[in-house]
Design a protein around this nucleic acid. Structure first.
Lengths: 359, 359
DNA sequence: TGCTCCGATTCAAACGTTTAAACAAAACTA
DNA sequence: TAGTTTTGTTTAAACGTTTGAATCGGAGCA
């Protein structure tokens, strides 16, 4: 690496001042066309690289936007991220991605790092238990925040997520309309607003149909395939003999279906299963998964736009914005056929259960 | 946001110079213990935020490391990324992530952005067709590069990847040892070194076993579940009636198994399928997937370490480092049973399929 | 001729750190 | 006592941009 090429290198080579060079490279109308041309050519010739930290020190705009979610390798977030990426790319912002794995501390670290780097804004799916003060830390230091997928109490920044209660009610109603009356709910926790909303939607739908809500039919757990797979054992062993399951998300649902298949039952026939999110994967699962589209791409797009707007001075989007989910009916749900499958399940399940996979 | 708190704010509040404050906050032994204490307290009290761009302007070390891969939502990369993250976190580096989707241009943009931000180094899985000049661009500007998963011709920077030829040979031999002789290879392209190596390993294993390599048994395609799913049709329609498939990766394999199941055949019994990578998902697929562990976590860890070493002045790791893959045998492969499956497959589907997985 | 005005360019002061070198005062040394 | 160290702190010059204000050489006008 010869010697670092900077504005002054170009300026000297051309007998101009750095000011002119700076202006020219940014296409300012203040500099003569011919000069601009000469400068730009020279810049390329010398392999000039714009130093953004020097610039941002002066301008206090870094072009950096932070995005932090629970886990970027979770396809649910991945779809949101893709939408955000597309939207931000277009306005030439660099984005820094991070997982917080629901650790409030890791999340705060990220916010601090971002502040140190002079981040222009942050989009976050807040970790469980995020205190309002962490959001304010960002906002108070001039870094606007946008929330996705979850809300934080007492915080009024723009927030985008699916209408969870509505969505699970949709799924539950679908199963009820197929004749199911003993419906379990699998996966997720009650520690997040999402968790409470989803359970509420499920419970409300049952109640409305005159079915008693039985807490024994709730099997909470992580939101992973693995967890769904493992939940199959409990599900099948449940003395109430549920014939259908509303799952927290597609991953859990696919895991559950795998578990059910392992136990010798046919998911979609013997047991009806609904997912949530409508990941790409849902359509090619076997059987293809009936699920609830949760508008990830919309969430991502809206969030990115809201942030960009905010950076340009508007604050119209403050507060909560719910995306209305939609039902995607496929083959993993079918009408209740009394007598089929469900009792044969008892024995085939016991034998296989302990050989189950780990990872 | 009141007024930006900087070193001088603290200095003034305490009647000291910014130099002392700067030193104190970085725990320099040059400043008296009591002073250091006072300074640190004040910093917290005032909500001081360290300005990294100002600092890095002076020190030319930004603490930023870039990582660019084909697609971060691809679980193969996700596992590598996780390993990198763990390793970098420990040395308090911030990392910026990006997809290039195999667009050389997008990749170059990323490198340029990173240079502008003063990135300390970059870890990349180069896009197909990456010219040596793009790597040199980084290196020549003082930003060392590390390559993962793929090599770039003429480039000698530290490169970490699995031994692909060896790995596919492993899988192919496994199938041969089970009695299969008509073995297809599904997914991937020949435009990457990885692609060529994998095909070579497959071909070599066949040849060594005295089986003729038939190009008609090669079904290239993207490296996704979707693509594997779609390939099932071609695979089953192939007039050579292959009884086994070596798949490019686990995603393709799982997609293919879904496709085979859709067609009424039982993957793992009627058709043997091997994957590649040993993703978490492989163990809980139905049937549990026989696959080749490709050492993603090692690749990530080694790559991160190599970069950190390089930043500290050592350059021992230059050149190619191959990780030796290992076989993971599960239920998606079974001995060839002549006559069974391939034609009479239609009915056998629902019954027994599998007992538990192990891994 | 003297004036203003204009377009093109330059000056110089920021932006918030770090760090070599200088300094001052206190603590030893001879 | 004066000289030397040691300890703690300050000075001031960077780092590479941006930008309001200043400069300069004409052109246009009266």
């Amino acid at each position: 690496m010869a010697q670092k090429v900077k504005l002054s290198t170009i300026a000297e080579a051309l007998g101009l001042s750095t000011a002119t060079v700076s202006l020219a490279l940014r296409d300012s109308p203040l500099v003569a066309d011919t000069t601009r041309e000469r400068i730009k050519e020279k810049a390329i010739e010398l392999g000039y690289i714009y130093n953004r930290r020097a610039a941002s020190l002066r301008t206090s705009r870094s072009g950096i936007i932070g995005v932090v979610v629970h886990d970027i390798m979770n396809p649910f977030y991945a779809e949101i991220l893709k939408a955000i990426e597309t939207e931000l790319d277009r306005s030439r912002q660099t984005f820094i991605l991070s997982n917080h794995y629901d650790s409030v501390e890791k999340q705060r670290n990220f916010i601090e790092t971002l502040l140190q780097l002079g981040g222009d804004g942050v989009i976050m799916s807040p970790a469980i238990g995020t205190p309002a003060s962490d959001i304010r830390l960002a906002e108070d230091n001039g870094m606007p925040a946008i929330l996705i997928a979850r809300s934080v109490p007492e915080i009024d920044v723009p927030t985008f997520r699916g209408d969870d209660a509505y969505g699970t009610a949709l799924a539950t109603n679908h199963l009820i309309s197929l004749g199911h009356t003993c419906i379990a709910m699998i996966g997720g926790t009650d520690h997040t607003s999402t968790g409470r909303d989803r359970y509420a939607g499920y419970a409300a739908a049952l109640t409305k149909a005159g079915i008693t809500v039985d807490p024994a039919l709730r099997i909470p757990g992580p939101r992973t395939k693995q967890s769904g797979f493992e939940a199959a054992v409990n599900f099948l062993a449940n003395p109430l003999k549920p014939t259908a399951a509303v799952c927290w998300n597609d991953l859990v649902a696919i895991g559950l279906m795998n578990g059910i298949a392992r136990a010798g039952l046919v998911p979609g026939k013997d047991i009806s299963v609904t997912g949530y999110d409508d990941l790409e994967e849902a359509a090619i699962a076997t059987p293809a998964l009936t699920t609830v589209w949760n508008g990830q791409s919309e969430v991502g797009r809206f969030a990115a736009r809201a942030l960009l707007d905010k950076l340009n001075g508007s604050s119209e989007a403050d507060g909560l914005h719910l995306i209305k989910p939609e039902m995607r009916i496929r083959q993993s749900t079918s009408p209740l056929n009394p007598g089929a499958g469900r009792q044969g399940a008892g024995q085939s399940q016991a034998g296989d259960s302990e050989t189950g996979a780990r990872s």
